[in-house]
Design a binder for these strands. Sequence first.
DNA 1: CGGCTATTTATGCAAATGTATAATTAGAAA
DNA 2: TTTCTAATTATACATTTGCATAAATAGCCG
Lengths: 211, 211
Amino acid sequence: MPRRSFQHAPEGVRRQDLINATLDCIAEHSLQGATVRQIALRAGVTAGLIRYYFPGKDELVHAAYRETMSRMTGLAKSLADDYAREYTATPRQHLEFFVKASLSPPVVDARTLSLWANFVSLIHVDPEMAEIHKESYLAFRNEVERLIAAVLDHEGRPAPKSELARSAIAINAIIDGLWLEGCLAGEIFGENDLVAIGINAVNAVLKPTEG
Amino acid sequence: MPRRSFQHAPEGVRRQDLINATLDCIAEHSLQGATVRQIALRAGVTAGLIRYYFPGKDELVHAAYRETMSRMTGLAKSLADDYAREYTATPRQHLEFFVKASLSPPVVDARTLSLWANFVSLIHVDPEMAEIHKESYLAFRNEVERLIAAVLDHEGRPAPKSELARSAIAINAIIDGLWLEGCLAGEIFGENDLVAIGINAVNAVLKPTEG
DNA sequence: CGGCTATTTATGCAAATGTATAATTAGAAA
DNA sequence: TTTCTAATTATACATTTGCATAAATAGCCG
């Protein structure tokens, strides 16, 4: 019986294929369904190959988590930047565009939520997953903080550092929460409802303080 | 070799023990670690007994999910009601108490988040989990809607049904999101920061409309 | 006390899982 | 073409998993 034929993949693409296949498996069948055999099948290779590119299944999942989070943050940021450039937006508008991008498809997406939940479920089990969570959380929050700082600066308002951080945490939380609800609830929200709620809430946080 | 000794458990408690053991296993070792053998070990029984109380492992997980969500909503509601009774609160204060309860321990809790994430990760895989999600989401949101309706009524403001629903969705999303952040971020938030952010955002949503 | 039944343990099984390792082959290098 | 090596397949293995079933026993009812 002849062996199945195969191709040598160019540098890095097989690795990426494996990560993508992992994401597909997790999104559709959850971590329990993301076995090395299923992943390999999806990637069009045999199971053994996974261990040629990754020390073990865990490391593959780590890579998949990193990929997911950096895609999300990157997408929100680049969409917002595109908008802002196109409309030569004020810093406030830029922030609002960021909120809008974060709370609309394709960032709001059932598949992404599914991936995210699977990964989060490992945070308390696997220290490396906890570390990835922390890093990606901070990456997103730093983006928010930069946008807020620009707003306050542009509007000539004093920005004590601690207050800035506080605002960033709050706004980050609001975006995360609404994103979650948008992904989970699906059709409940009209296209712009979620965005409107988000911008409204964000502006409330940024109002000149009143306790 | 003698068999291990055992006791017949009173009505319903063994079933509850199994659910609790399942929650422990999932919270500490995620779904992958919640095997029938681990669960049984934790509950102080042998693995076979699980199938005496549940048709299969799936149904046990379903029961654990139901339990978790109903505990959460019940806790927030009863804490808020207690506060409101103690201080003979206005409807607005009652709503704020509900927000406060939802965004403070023990509702905000890393363990609960861990459980929640594990369950959510199954929503797209198991239709029954999707159904439980839907039910528990609506149960919480109805509670929010009732509180909002009382506020608007008490303040003599017109409450068109659709607008009421919209507010409930928005406020529910804000609470959920901040709850999530509170659980995830842990020590980042001071005890009352999260509550302050939440009440602020909620009040923003409830402000006499401006688009 | 003796028997009955619901409850519980013990054992076994087939399937699946992650990993290790040896055999093969594609494709570049010479 | 021939050689060589990195990339890939194939196979095997020890564990683990959920589930089924038979054996045992606790504790109530008579």
